[in-house]
Amino acid sequence: MRQQLEEIKEKTKKVLEENFNSEELNDLKVKILGKKGELTTILKEMGKVSAEERPVIGQLANQVRDELQQVFAEKQQEIKNKELENKLKEETIDVTLPGREMKKGSIHPITKTIMEAEDIFIGLGFEIAEGPEIETDFYNFEALNLPKDHPARDMQDSFYITPEVLLRTHTSPVQIRSMIEKKSEIPLKIICPGKVYRRDDDATHSPMFHQIEGLVIDKNIRMSDLKGVLLTFAREMFGTEQKIRLRPSFFPFTEPSAEVDISCVMCGGKGCRVCKQTGWLEILGSGMVHPNVLRYGGYDPEEVSAFAFGMGVERIAMLKYGINDLRLFYENDVRFLSQF
């Protein structure tokens, strides 16, 4: 009987070296270890073994059964792994095929630039003010210290609706309207984004374009504050390395006035074609609000001071996105728009 047990163990191990699928393995397992299996059949002969040998044989029988069960389990695992492997192999897909097409819309680069600038100024405590695009001469010019005979009116050739009403040439009239609405309350911190119109149409001028102007009125507003706010804006818009440079200039509505340059976004200030080798790019006009303008807005220039600034959105967008042709903004070619 001992020999029988040894034989069945060796035989089964040998058989298992061959290839099976899991079904065949199961059949074999039943044939050997099942209730009517070979091992059970042998064990039924246990009664014939002498009482002295019985414990020894019994122990051996258990040992053989455990060993075979172990071998079957291992084989089972092996087959399972192999089968899974084959299954995964069969399921291979072409991962280089393009992904499913998603709907992709876009926000116009002008709107996008305005929104980004708005977010920056909101972070600095500004509110957003809006006003009519068709304006009176008073709000567009006169209240901005540009009386009828002022030579600086030549700087802005305007579209007129009547001799007293025109398409606004800048968003500054919104500042006046906001001041009057605020009834000399302080602080007043607003930016005014929007469309503006000038009678110019060529490669570098569009008869309609966009501006963002800003105004801060409070007690003790200083030109140094203007520098701080604009530096913050430049850095958030164009990068933390940005520097700004102020050059004296002239605007009828500010005194002192300054043009503001940022370090060239193309070359970082080393000098290139875009910045005409100067390392600087002019992006906005600014200054301390002229006392006449404050008075028109209902504020006392002896009580408060203010700074204002204004920039062309197209210019900012062109610099930010590397757009080289102004006309692209109003052609609205979807191949252009889809890039934003």
Partner: peptide
């Protein structure tokens, strides 16, 4: 020289900026 004017931020009453 405008470059010699310091760089500061407005102080005093600050209020939160926001879109309406």
């Amino acid at each position: 020289g405008l470059e010699n004017i310091p760089v500061t931020l407005p102080y005093g009453d600050t209020h939160k900026g926001a879109r309406n």
